[in-house]
Structures are given as C-alpha cells and as structure tokens.
Design a protein around this nucleic acid. Structure first.
Length: 188
DNA sequence: CCCTGATTCGC
DNA sequence: GCGAATCAGG
C-alpha cells in the first residue's frame, strides 16, 4: 500500500478528529499504526496531546541491525539553547481547580429491582475484582461498566475482559442486556 | 498487559 | 519517503 492522495486525506481527517493512529491504520488497512504515525510526522501534523517528551536524543543503538557500518557521524549537537528568555513574571496562573459539582449525572446504574438476583449477585462479585481502569485504559476488550460516582474519586471502570464483542464483561453483560420478556416479567 | 504517540534509521 | 523497531508514558 502506498500513500495515495485519498489515503492521506483520510489520514488527515481522522487524525484531525483525534482518532488514534491504530484506529486510522485499521481504517485504512494495509498499514500499521507505526506507518500512520510516521506519515503523520512527515506531514508535519504531529503535535496534539500526549506525553511531552523531554529531549530524547540519546538512544541506545538498536540491537536488530547487524552492524552500523558508518559509525563516525558528524552528529555534533551544540544544543545551545540561545532562546531569549521570556521574562515571565508572576503570571496569575488560573489553576482550574473547579471540578464536578457532584450532583445529577450518574452513570446508568440500573435500579436494583430491574436486575435479576442472579445477575445482581454476579455483578457484586465482579465489582470486587474489577480492575479499576481509568478512562484511558479502556479498550475494545475491557469492560466499560462504570462503577461508583464520577463526581468523586470513587469512580472507575470494571475493566475485566469483555464477553467477546460486547462492551462489558460477562457479569455486566448480564445486567446490561436483558431479554424484553424477563424485564417485563420483573417490572411493575 | 493493554494502549498511546515519538523517534530513529536502514531501506 | 517509508515504516519496523524501539522508546516512553498512561
């Protein structure tokens, strides 16, 4: 696969939308996320979020390549940051301490009377062993069932392995997806 | 371990 | 220019 105008366009679009490199790679097909990232950099549209690296520079030589024949590289790096020091007086840094006012928005926690006793039991059990993942750690294979109150520190996601394709683990699938019949049964 | 982007460097 | 290997962080 090569970077046709069309593919590059898709890349730009998705990257702009904040899609991850792997997602873009999957969408395009025929390329890895590395390829996508490499292209992104070459296109010069890299920065955006993430890990602010602190001057990498020194890296151990890769072990893969048999040998680096040309060793003597004029890789001189004065690294004299002659950047004019911007006098930054005591800037009133507005620290956004503001945070969720603990109130209305609660995740869709089904009311107890709508869940079968069995499911309820398994959920209770599972939540004891939940991985307590953060939002960032959620993937297509981790249970996305929210546990706790988002307005407090007592909040995380189940994070257990999903039940094949489903967004939740087996236990949570049990309370998330219920047959209409059983629901109607218990209802009222 | 999963994921993310960043960088290096042989090709 | 390309992207695998590698690194670094969450």
């Amino acid at each position: 696969m090569s970077w046709t105008d069309e593919r590059v366009e898709t890349l730009k679009k998705m990257w702009g939308e904040g899609q991850s490199a792997s997602q873009i790679a999957k969408e395009l097909g025929g390329v890895t996320r590395n390829a996508v990232i490499g292209k992104v950099h070459r296109l010069g549209l890299s920065n955006r979020t993430t890990t602010a690296k602190t001057t990498p520079e020194k890296k151990a030589a890769p072990a893969k390549p048999a040998a680096r024949t040309k060793a003597a590289e004029p890789r001189v790096e004065p690294k004299v940051e002659a950047k004019p020091v911007s006098p930054e007086p005591t800037r009133p840094i507005p620290i956004r301490k503001a945070i969720i006012p603990a109130g209305q928005p609660l995740p869709p926690q089904p009311s107890a009377n709508e869940i079968s006793p069995e499911a309820m039991a398994s959920v209770r059990e599972v939540e004891k062993t939940a991985k307590k993942l953060t939002l960032m750690q959620l993937t297509e294979r981790t249970c996305k069932w929210p546990i706790g109150d988002p307005a407090t520190e007592e909040f995380w996601f189940c994070g257990l392995d999903t039940k094949a394709g489903k967004p939740y683990c087996e236990a949570h699938v049990g309370v998330a997806f219920q047959p209409m019949s059983s629901r109607r049964e218990r209802r009222r």
